[in-house]
């Protein structure tokens, strides 16, 4: 059975991009693929929306870019996390975890009532 696909929640794409870039320096196509891979293809990411997000993060100086050669031998723009970006990632991760925990708490309490 194929797992059901989820639309990405508002604002989470930035977090995912920061996360996948924390391990490696990647170009746009690779970022998209890495997100698909890590989510085991359960997240539905509109490929095009990746680029405005990347450019926005670059403008915020959370990631920086450099032109290089991809594994396919093509010229590509590689993004990598900056120091500010990694601080941001930690902050965003904490916020996300606390958010998930809060939601879970509510859901748990509803179950208990039933």
């Amino acid at each position: 059975m194929t797992p059901s696909k989820h639309e990405l929640m508002q604002g989470t794409l930035d977090l995912l991009i920061l996360k996948v870039l924390s391990a490696d320096s990647l170009h746009g196509w690779d970022v998209a693929k890495r997100i698909q891979l890590l989510s085991q293809e359960r997240l539905l990411v509109k490929q095009g929306s990746l680029y405005p997000a990347l450019h926005r993060l670059e403008q915020k100086a959370w990631i920086e870019a450099e032109w290089g050669i991809s594994s396919e031998g093509r010229k590509a723009k590689f993004y990598r996390l900056t120091k500010e970006g990694s601080l941001q990632l930690t902050a965003e991760t904490n916020r996300w975890e606390s958010f998930v925990a809060s939601i879970a708490m509510i859901l748990d309490s509803r179950e208990a009532q039933q």
Partner: peptide, 18 residues
């Protein structure tokens, strides 16, 4: 189709550049 509206993406990026 999967990528989405290319011009739209371009405009969105421009907006990101401010």
């Amino acid at each position: 189709r999967e990528f989405g509206h290319v011009d739209g993406v371009r405009e969105a990026c421009k907006e990101a550049w401010g």
